[in-house]
């Protein structure tokens, strides 16, 4: 080969190599990444969270493929779903709800997982691959809003199972003290204890704050709690909007769209290369929303500030 032909071919080869090196990110970027949303509920809140999550990611990764799957009670159907997901080889799984989180971690142990629509971080903190946004309200937030709704209240009741909420109660006692309130925390170790505990609440407190606690608040106890507080005119701060609809005075809730955006931001960090284990679990960053049951307020002879009524996301009459 003559010297001039050698130079020509070497230039062509270098040019091709350069082209390949420059093109590889684009090539890599053009290779479709998949994000899977896995959920065990299809409520309006879940849908809102999913759609805002999707919108946030699409804004940054227009080529991203996002697929949503609803888990079934049927294990066989779920296994088929998992096989389909495996074929997609997702880069990240967004899991909504504790059973979706559990399934996601078991079926896809190596895949980063962003968890939400759960109250307790214990559902995913054992895994290095998971992080998320918890539906949790700090006690301080509860008391600040309580003072807005019921400024004259001093004795605040909470029912709790020590096995589930001892830490929150310790935090709450300190927050109550700082806010000039007295926390009356009554233990409920089993649902059988609940009737006496509710009687004690009616005697010694002016309001009952509901906190996520599966011993106190379950399918078997929800009616008892609502009726007892209603009948004894003890305002009950419900766990969510559905409790207010059922008769609780008010509840602090979340903007599920904002949570979806927050989850999207976490997913973006993971897609950019941050390991999930270095991202600590978060709580919602936006201000809580609230709903009010005005019929309950009237029954309790309570005057709710008009600014609160105007600012409520839902009013029940």
């Amino acid at each position: 080969m003559s010297h001039s032909k050698y130079h020509l071919w070497s230039r062509v080869i270098v040019f091709c190599l350069l082209l390949m090196a420059l093109a590889s990110p684009a090539f890599a970027a053009n290779k479709t990444q998949t994000v899977v949303i896995l959920t065990n509920h299809n409520t309006e809140a879940h849908q809102q969270l999913s759609s805002f999550f999707e919108a946030h990611l699409r804004n940054r990764y227009p080529a991203l493929e996002i697929a949503q799957y609803l888990l079934d009670d049927d294990t066989k159907k779920n296994n088929t779903t998992f096989r389909e997901i495996r074929q997609r080889n997702p880069a990240i799984i967004l899991a909504l709800g504790s059973s979706a989180i559990r399934s996601g971690l078991e079926a896809f142990p190596g895949t980063p997982l962003v968890a939400s629509m759960v109250i307790n971080e214990e559902s995913f903190t054992l895994s290095n691959q998971a992080t998320g946004v918890l539906l949790k309200l700090p006690a301080q937030t509860h008391f600040l809003w309580l003072k807005r709704f019921l400024p004259s209240v001093k004795n605040v009741g909470v029912l709790y199972d020590p096995n589930e909420n001892s830490t929150w109660i310790q935090e709450a006692e300190e927050a109550a003290r700082l806010n000039g309130l007295k926390l009356v925390a009554i233990t409920v170790e089993s649902p059988q204890n609940l009737p006496q505990a509710l009687k004690a609440i009616s005697r010694s407190t002016e309001v009952l704050i509901g906190i996520p606690d599966t011993t106190v608040y379950s399918r078997n106890t929800v009616k008892m709690v609502l009726l007892s507080t209603f009948r004894n005119r003890i305002p009950f701060v419900g766990l969510s909007q559905s409790w207010v609809k059922a008769g609780a005075l008010y509840s602090l809730d979340w903007d599920y769209g904002d949570i979806g955006t927050q989850c999207g931001a976490i997913a973006g960090q993971i897609l950019a290369g941050t390991p999930p284990s270095t991202i600590p679990p978060q709580i919602p960053k936006s201000q809580p929303r609230f709903s009010i049951n005005m019929k309950t307020a009237r029954h309790m002879n309570l005057d709710i500030d008009s600014s609160l009524v105007a600012g409520a996301s839902s009013i029940y009459e």
Partner: peptide, 25 residues
């Protein structure tokens, strides 16, 4: 409460106290 998951406390449909006040547990 379709399962016993803790978060179901937040999303369950619950009987209103205004219909339940005679029909208690």
């Amino acid at each position: 409460f379709s399962s016993d998951a803790e978060e179901d406390l937040l999303f369950a449909n619950i009987d209103s106290v205004y219909t339940a006040s005679k029909h208690e547990q």
